[in-house]
């Protein structure tokens, strides 16, 4: 499924992805600037395949995907994946492809919007995630929205001669900072 439009602050917005977003995201995943804490920097689809992937992900009822827009332009994506609707648990993730926009708080705002929707509209009772430990900006963005570290997975993957650990986090509705609820949930 795709998530609904949620307006945030500082020019950040979550919105349903477009086909152009689906074509753009894999291209970002080929860049060294954004894959230090991401996958193997290879691609396994053509632009034509992106449409089929979009169709499948749009129909999948165990995930919610948004495009993160900044100043009206796509900057990455976020979502909740592998949702277990019985246990009401899911794994969250975020990817900022526009490395020229790093450091502007876009991830923090996107996570704040995403988690508000997760708790206020989806009715999940827990979410969890794994983030590269040196990727402080990412786990800090999640901490600000209520995530807490519950473990460290040692030597998870290898980059530039070093093993990288992962930060394991979880969040619950009661850990979300009530005073940071987006406008859509303030009455």
């Amino acid at each position: 499924m795709f998530g609904p439009r949620i307006a945030g602050e500082g020019g950040v917005e979550l919105r349903p992805p477009t086909l152009e977003d689906y074509r753009q995201n894999p291209r970002w995943m080929l860049l060294p600037e954004v894959t230090r804490f991401w996958g193997p920097r290879t691609i396994s689809e053509t632009d034509a395949d992106a449409e089929e992937r979009m169709r499948k992900e749009g129909a999948r009822d165990t995930s919610i995907v948004w495009t993160i827009a900044y100043a009206g332009e796509s900057a990455g994506f976020t979502g909740v994946f592998d949702i277990d609707w019985v246990r009401r648990d899911g794994e969250t993730g975020i990817f900022i492809g526009r490395h020229d926009l790093y450091g502007r708080g876009i991830a923090s705002e996107a996570v704040r919007l995403r988690m508000a929707y997760v708790w206020k509209e989806l009715g999940l009772r827990r979410t969890h995630n794994w983030i590269a430990l040196p990727n402080r900006g990412s786990w800090r963005a999640n901490q600000k929205a209520g995530y807490a570290q519950v473990g460290t997975y040692p030597r998870s993957f290898f980059r530039s001669g070093e093993w990288v650990d992962e930060w394991l986090g979880e969040a619950f509705p009661h850990t979300y900072p009530a005073d940071r609820l987006p406008d859509a949930w303030r009455r």
Partner: peptide, 22 residues
């Protein structure tokens, strides 16, 4: 053990934690 998820599983009327082992 390298991590512990809290109240992950629900069985027999109560939640139980999840252990991550390596």
């Amino acid at each position: 053990e390298f991590g512990r998820g809290h109240e992950v599983y629900y069985r027999d009327g109560a939640h139980v934690d999840q252990l991550w082992l390596l």
